[in-house]
Each structure stands twice: as structure tokens, then as C-alpha cells.
Design a protein around this nucleic acid. Structure first.
Lengths: 358, 358
DNA sequence: CTGAAAGCGCTTACAG
DNA sequence: CTGAAAGCGCTTACAG
């Protein structure tokens, strides 16, 4: 104890002289204070393991006393590693994407990677500028939701050799690795389920399709199923609008504003939010599912299984999509080669689907 | 044109020689290719404005040709600015925090700041390690949800002079700047509203209180209101459990499993999620609000105003909390001094509160 | 296992 | 407005 404190007294002025321009201790100060080379300090803090315990503990003590911690920029510049990954999603307001980011984070944090988050609000120009900002700050890998982004984005990633993976998309013949599922097929399955229950008159309530090939694929899947049964989907029965519950309610009201014989008996919604809105809109009209019509959602949000009536919907494990994407990226960073991963949504048949009325 | 291309041909080998160890072009390569000093290239790309248009355009052309973009680590090391901010929240699965991050991002992006995101899952040790990781990577400012974090976290931020602001908290006498609201007061107001409607027997359904002084404050506010009216809140009427809808439903069932005379007439929930669960649980029992009991939520989630019955709840503008926090941080970074900001939740009186039964 | 020294890619006084 | 040069704080061959 006495020794330590006397050392401290002797070295104080020297330490002060040694500090960098901003007054913060540098690795060099730690080295001097511990009486070792800068290389040894660096080795101790990068866990190379090839340092004697004696030196290591002296270095650690000196660092603690000087409140020194490695400075990222210096380290990044010298080692060309930043330990930063990035995620670009449309918005956190959609549970689906928030869950993906959660999953991503949960695995990156274990590997000491910190993650940048960028929200594009479905604007391709914005996703490009987020990507550039992250690139400029040295991201080592990027997870990007969807593939509706400017080609420059992918080109610049390629120029810099930054690995990326597309989440929530599906295009086996596409140029990118993805972790996602077949949106068209999933909606095809939903319609098939309704067919088996006896439905023939379908309607659709969808979120915006602009810059969103996923939603386009969903509609295509619905159309394919309907037409495979020799039927067609009238344009009047396709409502495309905003993401919110209000649009679901308004659309349902519009669809039901006809004679009973002309009404659709099954309403397929592009997501749970719209379906919940449709249910609320129906209630206002005194209609309910599955008595007056059948209704399906998509996503299986946390509330969907608990609201009444329990919503029939398709469950997608977005946390898994996020964590698989992160693992994929980590594997590539370690020298592996990437590949695409297809996950399978599960149809959750609950209370809002049944036989058609009559 | 001809000149440019012939220059290009001449310089190709030279450029190749000039590239850095990783094969990527450096600022120096751009300078050589444009025939100017490195200082000029730097000036062009940091928008200092003090460069002649002639040099600027030559530099930009060279950079484009070499596909060069500034390297963050070099820039950060030389300028001691990283243009990175960070947010630490418990989880993205709670809409409240996701909205805060959205608000934060929306203002940081305008100032060219990229944001790190860390989710602690309500674990103080995890929030500390996120903070350290961000510090090590050079965050310039940090928004942290809540104040239930290890003291080391705040000490290390102070050591490095990194400004931070606490969001969603409220402690006028506390050591930190915050952007939040008075949780106790908000719940006091909720109970007051119920009192005015004639309620006297209260119950509470709350999310976990561990490491969460906000929830503790909420309960304190409820107790204060009840006791200011000379009544008390029986321990049996306080359910504290998990965050999910299921716990809301189960708790409601437990609370109502008594004779009509002993049942609480008003149930105050710690958040909308629990309230929605309670409503669902009530429906299973054939009970409904406000006929059989009154019910309140907190947050005003996007679904809360649309579900039936429309939930009486307290609206908090979390997007604003996030953006105010970011603006605050930006102001401090520009040399201003920080201060705390108190926002006011709004009581949204809707359909689930009314006179007590009988 | 340890150290001296070069170098990572920029910015910024300083001088002109 | 422009340039030569020092320096930001680390890591990493290289030599011992």
C-alpha cells in the first residue's frame, strides 16, 4: 500500500506532462507508468494472451489508476477492425422490424459488436444515406430489411467488401443473401385455408405497396390461390392504404357496405394491425367474425392471440430472423461464405375463420 | 473529356502503387490524382467552404474515379469527432421505448449523427456494458432510458465528458438531466379521476418493479391519492407481475374472484398492455367495463384508442421525449448547457371508466 | 515473452 | 485560397 501511494506521488507530474492534447490518458501514458512498452499494453488489452502475468497486472493497475480505456479510433485505424455492425429497417413502429433488431442485437452483443440502427421510413433514398453514414463510420457488416433499395447501396457495400444480408425478403434467384420467407406462398396458404372452409368471395386489405415488393408478393400469392380455383379477385375488393388500424376499420366498413349476397365472406389482411382494425370496424357495424365473415391477419403480434376474438393469422419468428442474420454475418466476417436462409411461417388457426355465412 | 481520359491512363499505374495496404484508395491518392495537397482534399470533404471551386471540382472528380470516401477512423482520430450518438433502452419490444428511439433518430439523422442502439433487458449490468462498448467506440452523447443503472455508468460518462440525458424518468432533485414526466403525479391524476366518478375500492395491476423506479413511483402516486382520501389500498388488491397481456388477464380474474361487494370497482393498470389483457380477462368472465368495473391504462398505445371498448388511459408522447432528448444532447455538444425537460401526459378519458356498479 | 518503430488515414495549426 | 508536415492513439510485423 505505502509503496503504491508513494509511486503515485512521484509519478503525478510526469503523468500530467504525458497526457494527450485533450487531457485524457493515452496508451503511451499507461506504458510509461507501468514501465513497459506500448506493445505490451496493447497486448494486454487486446487479450492476445502472450503477456506474462506480472506485466499484465502492472499494466492493468496503471490503466485503472489513469482511468484509461482504449480509444476506438486509434484502434480501428491501426487494426482496421471497428467491431461495429449495422441494421437498416423501415421503422421501429412496426413490431416485426423491432423484433428483428432485438434478435440481431442479442447475438451481436455476445461477440462484442455494437450495432448502429437506421430507420428509413420506407424511403429508399434514406436507406442509402443511412448505409453511407454507417460505411463512413466503419461498419463491418450490415443487415438490411427488404431489398427495395437503390442499387448504389449494394454497389457501395460491394466496393468496400462489407458483407450484408437482406432480412424479411425472399428471392431465391436474387443477387443477395437473405433470411426470410416466401411471402407469396404464405398468403397462398392463407387463402387455401379459407377455400377449404368453403369461402369463394374474397377481399383484401393491404398496407402500402410502394417500394415494398414483399406486399406486392403477398397480393400476388393471394391472386394466384384465387385464380387456381378458377375465380378472380375484383378490384373493388382490394383495399390498399396505410398501415394503421384505422385503415383496417374503414376498409372493412367499405367492403361490407353492400347487400349480403355481394359482400366478401372472407377478408385477408396484409398484417395483424389491419386485421385488428377490421375487427374493430366490424364491431361498429354490429358484425363479427367468424359469424358474418372470416378474417385473417399476418405476423401474429403479441396481442393477436389474446384479443377477442382470437385472430387467425400467420406467425413469423422475427426474433429468429434477426438472430440468424447476425449469425450469418458473423460467420462471413470469420471467413465463411454466406448463404440464404428460408424460415417458415406457421398458420395459427384461431377464432376468426370459419364457414361462410348462410 | 480527352484530357481527363488521357490523364486517367497516365495515372493508373501510379494510383495502383499509391493505394493503401488494404487496396483501398486513401485521401493521399486522391490528392495526388487531383494534383493538390492532402489538406485541400480534406477541406473539400469537410465542407469548410474555403476552397476554390476549381480545386474542389478536380478533387471531387478524382475521388469519384477512385471510389474514395473518407475513412471514419482516420477522421475521428485526427479530429476527435465521431458523429456517433447512442441510445440505451430496456427493450424494443415495448412500444414506449421504440418510439423514443424513433424520435431520437429522427433528429440525429438531420445532424449527420449515426446512432448506436443498446437494449439492456432491464439488466443494469447489461446497460453498463452497452455504455462501455459505445464509449470505447467513441459515442459523443448518450440518451439513456431510466435512471436505474450502476453508478459506474454515470461516472465513466463523466470521466470522459460525454454528455447524456435520462429519458422517461423524473427526478427534479436528481443528479442527471432528464426528459420525462412525473410518474407519481400522473397516476395520482388517474386515481383522482376515478374518485370523482365515485369509486372507493381500488385495485392495481403492475409490471415488475425491480430495477424500475418509474413503476415504483407509479404505485406511490396511486397510494398517495388513495390515502389522501382517507382510504387504503389492501395488499390483496395489488398485483405485480410480468409485462404481458396474459398477466393482465390473470390478475383481473383473481381480483374479481370475490363477492360483488368485495370486488374492487376500479382497476388501475400500470400500462395499456396490462389493461388490454385485463379487458380480455374480464370478457372471459362475462364482465365488461365500465358496467361491472372501471379500468385505466397508461401509455396510449396506438391500438388503445381503437379497440373496443375504447380504453381510458394516459397519453405520453414518447416520440417527442426522444426528439427532445436528442436536441438537448446536440445543444450540449455545441457548447450549451443542459437542463431537464418535463413533459405532461394527457388523460384520455374514453369508454372504460364510469360510475361504479350498484 | 518483450520492445523499438513504422504505419493505419485522416485533420489542422502554421506559414505563405 | 493553398501546401508541407506534425500528430491524433492505437496495433503489429520484426527482431531479439
Amino acid at each position: 500500500m505505502a509503496k503504491t501511494s508513494s509511486e503515485g506521488m512521484k509519478e503525478d507530474p510526469e503523468i500530467r506532462r504525458g497526457r494527450g492534447a485533450n487531457g485524457r490518458a493515452r496508451l503511451e501514458d499507461v506504458a510509461r507508468s507501468a514501465g513497459v512498452s506500448t506493445a505490451s499494453v496493447s497486448r494486454v488489452f487486446s487479450d492476445k494472451g502472450n503477456v506474462s502475468e506480472e506485466i499484465a497486472s502492472r499494466v492493468r493497475a496503471a490503466a485503472r489508476e489513469l482511468k484509461w480505456a482504449p480509444h476506438a479510433a486509434g484502434r480501428a485505424l491501426a487494426s482496421s477492425r471497428t467491431n461495429i455492425a449495422g441494421a437498416i429497417i423501415p421503422t421501429l413502429d412496426v413490431e416485426v422490424f423491432a423484433r428483428q433488431v432485438s434478435g440481431l442485437q442479442s447475438v451481436f452483443i455476445k461477440q462484442n459488436m455494437t450495432v448502429f440502427l437506421g430507420c428509413s421510413n420506407y424511403d429508399p433514398a434514406s436507406s442509402l444515406s443511412h448505409a453511407r453514414a454507417m460505411l463512413a463510420r466503419g461498419v463491418e457488416a450490415l443487415a438490411i430489411a427488404g431489398e427495395d433499395h437503390p442499387s448504389e447501396l449494394f454497389e457501395e457495400l460491394a466496393d468496400r467488401d462489407v458483407p450484408y444480408v437482406i432480412t424479411y425478403a425472399y428471392r431465391p434467384d436474387g443477387p443477395h443473401h437473405y433470411v426470410g420467407f416466401d411471402h407469396a406462398k404464405a398468403f397462398y396458404q392463407i387463402v387455401e385455408h379459407l377455400f377449404r372452409l368453403g369461402h369463394r368471395r374474397f377481399a383484401v386489405i393491404l398496407q402500402p405497396m410502394t417500394n415494398n415488393s414483399r406486399v406486392q408478393a403477398r397480393l400476388a400469392g393471394i391472386r394466384a390461390a384465387v385464380s387456381d380455383h378458377g375465380l378472380c379477385l375484383p378490384d373493388d375488393n382490394v383495399c390498399v392504404g396505410s398501415y394503421d388500424i384505422g385503415f383496417g376499420a374503414a376498409s372493412l366498413a367499405r367492403l361490407m357496405d353492400r347487400s349480403r349476397k355481394e359482400r366478401p365472406t372472407a377478408v385477408v389482411c396484409g398484417n395483424d394491425n389491419l386485421a385488428i382494425g377490421a375487427l374493430a370496424g366490424a364491431a361498429e357495424l354490429g358484425l363479427s367474425a367468424p359469424h358474418d365473415f372470416s378474417l385473417t391477419g399476418f405476423d401474429d403480434l403479441s396481442i393477436s392471440s389474446l384479443l377477442r376474438p382470437h385472430l387467425t393469422t400467420m406467425k413469423v419468428d422475427n426474433f429468429a430472423i434477426g438472430s440468424l442474420a447476425a449469425e450469418q454475418l458473423l460467420a462471413i466476417l470469420k471467413g465463411g461464405t454466406g448463404h440464404s436462409i428460408t424460415v417458415s411461417p406457421t398458420l395459427m388457426i384461431r377464432d376468426t375463420t370459419g364457414s361462410p355465412p348462410d
